[in-house]
């Protein structure tokens, strides 16, 4: 739910309410990660590092369902729909454009909910390894999750051998989104 403002509020206030949106969304990714089979067998340090480098990318996948690439609108969980143009005032134009493109490609694959969830688990454990101590353990977990994703997708679409590779090709897209946009500024009012 994102209380993005009616037009009467200043873009600063709009920006603050938009920034507030991220906090619950990030917490949900942390809970999601803990539910991934094997994630909590990693060291606490490596769990934190993977979350720090992968959460933005998981959020990008989760937010895709809010984006309507055809209408160029975003509908928040509170039902409020905004056009791309109105959201540009928040100064996130380039991120929003990239999000529309990414969500169009992902939506075209037509994944089921459980396939999307497993894909998000793969996204998280495929995140940047620079801070990881036990790389082998993370790579083993990634391999297991990719195997599970492949068998789930191929079992449902035995005659479509292109979907799985197309899905894995979204991983570099997400990494680019992350490198280009995770340094965007948020603003929090401190009274």
């Amino acid at each position: 739910p994102c209380p993005v403002a009616p037009s009467s509020r200043s873009s600063q206030e709009v920006w603050e309410s938009f920034s507030q949106c991220f906090t619950p969304a990030v917490k949900e990714v942390v809970e999601f990660a803990k539910s991934i089979p094997g994630f909590q067998t990693l060291s606490q340090h490596d769990q934190v590092m993977l979350l720090k480098s992968g959460t933005f990318q998981v959020l990008m996948v989760r937010f895709c369902s809010l984006f309507d690439p055809k209408e160029r609108t975003v509908t928040f969980l509170n039902g409020q729909t905004y056009s791309l143009a109105s959201l540009r005032a928040l100064g996130m134009g380039s991120l929003l454009d990239a999000m529309f493109d990414f969500s169009e490609k992902l939506a075209s694959l037509g994944l089921e909910q459980d396939e999307m969830a497993l894909f998000m688990a793969v996204v998280l454990v495929s995140a940047d390894r620079s801070g990881i101590v036990e790389v082998g353990a993370v790579e083993q977990l990634q391999e297991n999750l990719i195997k599970a994703l492949r068998s789930l997708i191929t079992s449902r679409r035995p005659d479509d051998s292109t979907l799985f590779p197309k899905l894995l090709l979204r991983l570099p897209d997400l990494r680019t989104l992350n490198n280009q946009h995770s340094e965007k500024l948020l603003a929090f009012r401190i009274d």
Binding site: S19, F22, T23, V26, K27, V30, Q44, Q47, V48, L51, K52, T55, F56, H181, S182, E183, K184, L185, L186, A187, F188, R189, I190, D191
Partner: peptide, 25 residues
């Protein structure tokens, strides 16, 4: 006067994750 704390998305995400793991220690 209202003051503002500005941080990057990445830092905001890191902050929430660190807080969560510290709380559940």
């Amino acid at each position: 006067p209202k003051t503002h704390r500005v941080m990057t998305l990445a830092d905001h995400i890191s902050h929430i994750i660190t807080q969560d793991f510290a709380r559940n220690q």
